[in-house]
Design a protein around this nucleic acid. Structure first.
Lengths: 209, 209, 209, 209
DNA sequence: CATTAAGCGAGACGGTACGTCTCGTCTTATC
DNA sequence: GATAAGACGAGACGTACCGTCTCGCTTAATG
């Protein structure tokens, strides 16, 4: 979330930029969002405070850049969800990988901080949605669309709702308790989503509805 | 989240307590969580700062008490979800009532503040879960259990997963964007959850899985 | 400096009074005047704060009572300066005893506290003068008056000035530096006071004046 | 009492420094030492509290600087006591000027505050002695030394004792009562000091001593 | 090839809120 | 009714950061 478009030949010092993002990521992992301060970031980065204020509008914006630099430094956004043909197994695998990541404090603590920052700042929320949320959602929808094409899911399925059903419960549980749900929960979740709450009550269902 | 059990005859002044909770609730609605300060609460409540520090461990704890006092002051926890016999319609109604509430800033802003507080403080999160989350979840599970007893839902359904599927997507969308989803989204959500993603692709499903 | 005259049969608890004065004296010796607090005195004395506020108008007043209780508990004010007939030797002895006392922190620290209290509170200053300063001054003047009667001092000598000349320099030095002057200083002081600055320059003096 | 030596080109803001010293001097004259607070000084000076804490270790240190700035802002320390050749008259004049100054609350109240501060803080006492007391004492001793050179005072006179005899009684009376002594007292004081207590009892003295 | 203007590390500054401490008053229960 | 206990409104304490603002210094581009 740069304050200025990085077009043209800015005289910005890339070493300072990197030092700031690294310092912010490490610091937030150590002390949490509420105790993360611009002065502390500047001090750890060996940078003047003004260099942060010059390029970022808030500590949340620094954090978003820092998180993106860490999580997407390697992959250029080319990632995709696995597609073995077995949708059920693939979804379980993806969600179990997600909860595994959330169990690693190195990423979970900064992500939690980012969540707080986004909750407190609507502008940052828009930036977050555009740069992190939407790309991830598109990846997930792509996998579901493949299942549709394979005839495994109905064509009129609302893919956004489907993505929410699969991922929101995990995110919510992690937000609320600090811990992601268990692998068993994830398995049950996927199966319940795929089959529906009413799956084995066909007789009753057709009778009452 | 009282610092001390309120058993016995405490010498605590109940008028001060009420003034503090009212001031906190109003202030947070006006300025948001990050700009909510203990001094401002004390000043608006006409109370010394120490009276807050004496009885609450953090501003998040004050906020939780304030929110509970507002939302459960009247109902003694006896509330229940509607049960017309039509599960689908009841769930849509409940979720639409929920999103309607989230569109009212009077409650949504303090609730958002409480969400931030809970994200930043694991102890408060436990308190929140015990005093707010669990009772609500029990209400929701009670309605689903009634549906089970009526043969509308399978007996082996995991009710916790079911509740998450219904409510987490709404909460998540509201958290991420500041706005709750539309009534249409809610309707689609309920129907997708009840029927399952694979609902109209039985043939394919049995073939590939 | 009791807030109420102690005439009549007050229901005042003498044990509490003694505990307060003892606690005040000990505490001030430990922490100094500026860090001496009513709450700390009450706590150490095992007494409610109100019991202090009821009977004394300020911590300085407590301190004056505490100091008097310690220093004059035994002697009922009957003390007198030594009179060996040798004024010079007696004065030196008295002043050296004074500086010796000022070197004992047990009394010097509370006395210093009392000095501060008196500097800050004119009412307490009047009380101090009446109950401590004047009696001491009278003792000193009595010794000088005896010397006058013995023909050792001129009849028209202003005894107040004389007392000040002998004692003010010692008090002043102790106030300013925290340490009383040396025994040698005291000896030189007494001799200079008795003889006058001009003592051995009679010729010049008679010539120029 | 600067916390740091003012050598080199400090980035300290001299306007803030002056505003703080002025505010401190005026405030202490209005409310006295015990009610003088750093916050009030900062507020009146239009300065952040940290700017005071950054440069002074205590309010007493601010007060010392403030007093020195007022009393020695003009004179660069070049002052000297009057020397008309008539020691007796000069001393009376100087002491009467001193008591006149002590009757002016504008200077007397801050000086009294400074006295309290010095009594409570040995480090400040050392600073006070070095920057205020010693220079004044040297001035006084210089005048007495001139009298020695003129043969008006004996060469073996202890000038420190002599200065104390002349000035301590005035300072002491002012400290103890809040009022400096009268002009008459001062005259008697000077004459008694110069002539000695035993001045007109030579016969008796030689007989008994 | 200066010159000049931006970025930079550093940190003082006017502020604000923190959480603690103590003040002097008030209330409650005990004796 | 005096007392021990301690909650209360009030507000100063000294600290920590905020975001802004100079300072010199370095460094790349432009005239």
């Amino acid at each position: 979330m740069p304050a200025r478009p990085e077009t043209g030949h800015s005289r910005r010092n890339p070493a300072s930029r990197k030092a700031i993002l690294d310092a912010a990521f490490e610091l937030v992992a150590e002390v949490g969002y509420s105790k993360l301060g611009i002065e502390a970031i500047a001090a750890r980065a060996g940078v003047g405070k003004q260099t942060i204020y010059r390029w970022w509008p808030s500590k949340g914006a620094v954090l978003l850049d820092a998180y993106l630099a860490r999580t997407q430094g390697d992959a250029g956004g080319e990632a995709a969800l696995p597609d073995s043909g077995d949708l059920r197994a693939d979804l379980i695998a993806v969600l179990q990988a997600t909860v595994a990541e959330l169990r690693d404090p190195t990423f979970a603590v900064p992500l939690r901080a980012l969540t707080v920052a986004v909750l407190e700042d609507p502008e940052l929320a828009a930036e977050y949605e555009h740069r992190l949320d939407t790309p991830m959602r598109e990846m997930k929808k792509a996998r579901l669309r493949a299942a549709q094409n394979a005839g495994q899911l109905p064509d009129d399925l609302d893919l956004d709702v489907a993505v929410d059903l699969l991922f929101a419960p995990v995110a919510q549980k992690w937000s609320a308790t600090g811990e992601p749900p268990s692998d068993d929960y994830v398995r049950t979740l996927v199966e319940t989503v795929l089959d529906g709450l009413t799956r084995s009550a066909e007789g009753v269902r057709s009778a009452s509805m």
